[in-house]
Computed example of a mutant assay.
Amino acid sequence: MINVMLVDDHAILRDGLKTIISLENDMDVVGEATGGSEMVALLKTISPDVIVMDINMPEKNGIELTKIVKKEYPDIKVLILTMYKHEEYFMSALKEGADGYLLKDSPSEQVVDAIRTVHRGESIIHPAMTKKLISYHQQEAQAKEETVLTEREKEVLVCLVQGLSNKEIAGRLFISDKTVKIHVSKIFKKLDVKSRSQVVIYAVQHKLVQLP
């Protein structure tokens, strides 16, 4: 069972998400908060697997709260669900360790699938934001010494940037899931990143992959 916490100051949205999640057999809402203070207090009494969080909230915003969660509760996954399409919010959220970034116009089935995705340790990014990410870094990225990755690691890195799961990477490269996990772990270590979303940022920023 995936234990989910909802952090959003709009009661209607929380109620809607709670109803949607309650229809799923593999997840349950174990806590709700309207802002930072409530969230921090709740985390002392419950242990959610995934926090679904807005950005614009009283006290601290979702980006600041993501930083707190990742520092104090590194095993908890954070899925940002917001109306903001601005690059600065998106980039800041990922840099603070958010595991996913969806827009509030996403279909309900995409939201519940995203909860499962980040719970598995994978990342999910709204397609519109992926395009902004690529554009943002193509404009601002500067030349950097090439990171030493093996040819196989480079192939895996391309798949990560394309948003493929470990199973999909294994199928494309004709290797086992276990081997994919080993390659992903080595890539994380070499690039000094902690999540798949950060891998995407780093790879695009430093032009480690060729994108269309």
Score class of each variant (00 low, 15 high):
93 A>L: 07
32 E>I: 12
53 M>F: 03
112 V>K: 11
94 L>H: 09
167 K>I: 13
209 V>L: 08
184 V>P: 00
179 T>L: 08
72 E>I: 12
23 L>P: 01
32 E>D: 09
56 N>E: 13
59 E>H: 11
51 I>R: 04
37 S>Q: 13
55 I>T: 08
118 V>N: 01
38 E>A: 01
141 A>M: 10
9 D>E: 12
22 S>M: 06
37 S>W: 02
148 V>R: 04
18 K>T: 10
166 N>G: 05
189 K>R: 15
42 L>F: 05
70 K>G: 11
58 P>I: 06
32 E>M: 13
166 N>F: 01
25 N>F: 03
97 G>Q: 12
123 S>C: 14
98 A>D: 07
73 Y>L: 06
160 L>H: 03
64 E>S: 11
170 A>D: 09
191 L>K: 05
199 V>E: 04
46 I>L: 06
46 I>C: 06
189 K>Q: 14
73 Y>M: 02
31 G>C: 07
194 K>P: 00
160 L>E: 09
68 I>D: 04
139 Q>W: 13
40 V>T: 07
66 T>K: 00
65 L>C: 03
87 E>I: 08
1 M>F: 02
102 L>T: 03
56 N>G: 02
200 V>L: 11
13 L>G: 00
133 L>A: 06
71 K>C: 12
10 H>W: 11
154 K>A: 05
191 L>C: 06
24 E>T: 06
57 M>Q: 02
182 I>S: 10
28 D>E: 09
113 D>W: 09
196 R>Q: 12
195 S>M: 09
24 E>Y: 03
56 N>W: 08
40 V>W: 02
3 N>M: 07
